[in-house]
């Protein structure tokens, strides 16, 4: 296997909300074109980590960030153009948030902001992204009706299509399958496998088996600490480096 370059480098990251310590000094790299799983019980700081990576942590004014997260070698807390950073990263949150726009406009939102105006180019992009999110067949006849009228699972796929629409280099999925049925989940998982060749995927999931199926490497976080990070062969084996990992992965606690 070719040696991959680190896409994201996290070193001694600490995040505190007033007096809640959400992340207590974690360090690891996420490599280019890998699917990187992050597992761990609720409240372990997974969502907070994603918010630091795309700098939406800025909208929690009480948050204090120390340590370093580098994307493409640049410290995210010090980047000059935070909008360019965010455009590099597609984010899918646990609960779908359809903007109050048509299905088409939801997906065309980011490309339009990036300055794409040509109708045919937008049409093509919208269709491609909806295909990738396994939603095209269900909505192709009503692209111009409101995105917020879709079912929960459809809306989640719409947000995935939207996250793909600005052709991000990094795709973050935060427990994306919470509101979707298993069949759709499997469809999207197939999509993610294909996306690996084009981008880095960070898959935060509460479903241990999902990380096992999809990820190349996985990190196990608990209470703001990194318990263990390593290739799936190790993490999901019978003897990972840390006993707690074994117990969590095998449902002994968590």
């Amino acid at each position: 296997m070719v040696k991959q370059n680190p896409k994201i480098e996290i070193s001694d990251l600490k995040v505190r909300y007033d007096d809640v310590h959400a992340i207590n000094g974690i360090s690891f790299d996420i490599l280019e074109n890998e699917i990187f799983g992050i597992i761990g019980p609720a409240q372990s700081g997974k969502t907070t980590l994603l918010k630091v990576i795309n700098r939406t942590i800025d909208f929690s004014p009480e948050a204090r960030v120390t340590g370093r997260v580098k994307v493409d070698g640049k410290d995210v807390m010090r980047v000059g153009n935070v909008y360019a950073l965010r455009r590099k990263i597609g984010m899918v949150s646990p609960l779908p948030v359809g903007l109050p726009l048509s299905i088409y406009d939801n997906v065309a939102f980011a490309p339009r902001m990036a300055g794409i105006r040509e109708r045919s180019q937008l049409d093509e992009l919208v269709e491609k992204c909806l295909h990738q999110a396994a939603l095209w067949d269900e909505v192709k006849d009503r692209l111009h009706s409101l995105g917020t009228k879709l079912s929960g699972g459809q809306q989640q796929r719409l947000t995935i299509a939207r996250a793909l629409s600005h052709e991000p280099e990094i795709l973050c999925l935060d427990e994306f399958s919470i509101a979707i049925d298993p069949v759709t989940t499997m469809k999207i998982e197939d999509v993610l496998k294909q996306l690996r060749s084009k981008m880095t995927v960070i898959l935060v999931t509460n479903l241990v088996q999902q990380a096992r199926r999809l990820a190349d490497r996985t990190a196990f976080m608990m209470n703001g600490e990194l318990v263990e990070v390593g290739s799936n062969d190790v993490i999901f084996s019978d003897n990972p480096a840390n006993r707690k990992t074994y117990e969590y992965v095998n449902g002994i606690f968590g």
Binding site: Y83, R87, I89, P100, M113, H166
Partner: peptide, 23 residues
């Protein structure tokens, strides 16, 4: 959540206002 979604896609303050908040 609308603001967050738009911001996560890299919307600037003006784009957020013009394309999401005003509509």
């Amino acid at each position: 959540s609308y603001r967050e979604a738009a911001v996560a896609m890299g919307a600037t303050r003006w784009q957020l206002i013009r394309r999401v908040l005003l509509p």
